[in-house]
């Protein structure tokens, strides 16, 4: 466990000494504000709630989270530090967990920095605190799942761009299989109903929508956590059998 903390500390230190982190935060905050107020039609709704804010996260994170996760292992491979890390007395699960948690903490910080939007809404009206809490929880869990997936693609390659594109596509698929326009299309093409149910169950979109609306369902939380755990497990296996 101490090793996990040491790795988290190193990763966070490296993150915050590089300008990339600040660029990321600025882009993230700008985009989330832009989507909420400009595209989400916050002012048109005439309602003081945050659903137009949370609504965009599955899409926004598709681009932003892989940008954080793509470096994780690809960079270690490229620099040759993977050889250093894995010949130190660190187990693979510790290393995977440490890196993942560091990235997740960073994304958590990014989410916390969106609080001005919440304050704005509170100032304009009196929103229901329930959906805000579940919405943020959902966003954080969603970020973790995407991060674990992009860490996984990062473990496969030493090329960050390849890692970024693969994880973006994977995350996009996970959203789309439950996205109503897509499922409706499938229905029209005559896909049997049970496959649609299944794909909805597997979809990030379906589980996130519930949390975004303020529904607290343990199954959603279990879904996100098991998706994350699965991706982390695959990451560990890939690293264990690496051939570099």
């Amino acid at each position: 466990m101490r090793n996990v903390l040491t790795i988290i500390r190193r990763e966070l230190g490296a993150t915050f000494t590089s300008p990339v982190a600040y660029v990321f935060l600025v882009i993230f905050l700008a985009l989330s504000g832009f989507f909420t107020f400009m595209i989400g039609g916050f002012f048109l709704r005439n309602e003081a709630d945050l659903s137009s804010f949370f609504f965009w996260f599955p899409w926004l994170f598709i681009l932003l989270v892989p940008a954080v996760g793509m470096r994780q292992w690809a960079e270690e491979r490229r620099q040759g530090t993977l050889e250093l890390l894995f010949t130190m007395p660190v187990s693979i699960p510790e290393a995977v967990l440490g890196k993942f948690l560091a990235g997740w903490i960073f994304l958590g910080i990014a989410l916390v920095l969106t609080c001005p939007i919440v304050f704005t809404v509170c100032y304009l009206g009196s929103p229901d605190p329930g959906p805000i809490a579940t919405g943020y929880t959902g966003c954080f869990l969603l970020a973790g799942a995407y991060l674990a997936i992009s860490g996984m693609t990062s473990a496969f390659t030493r090329n960050q761009i390849v890692s970024f594109i693969t994880s973006t596509v994977l995350c996009l698929l996970l959203v789309l299989i439950g996205f109503p326009p897509v499922t409706n299309l499938l229905l029209k093409w005559g896909a049997p109903a049970w496959t649609l149910d299944l794909s909805a169950d597997l979809s990030v979109f379906y589980h996130f929508t519930g949390m975004q609306r303020g529904v607290f369902d343990l199954r959603d939380i279990v879904y996100f956590l098991s998706l994350t755990a699965f991706a982390l497990f695959v990451t560990g296996s890939v690293l264990k059998n690496r051939r570099a």
Binding site: N3, R9, T17, S18, Q79, L84
Partner: peptide, 28 residues
């Protein structure tokens, strides 16, 4: 053991002090 890999890889964006501190911590 202590190991010096070929070409001495190290975390390029860390300072020497930070890198040694990390190496020491991970060695408990």
């Amino acid at each position: 053991f202590g190991y010096l890999p070929e070409n001495a890889p190290a975390y390029q964006d860390m300072t020497v002090a930070g890198f040694l501190d990390f190496s020491a911590s991970i060695r408990r």
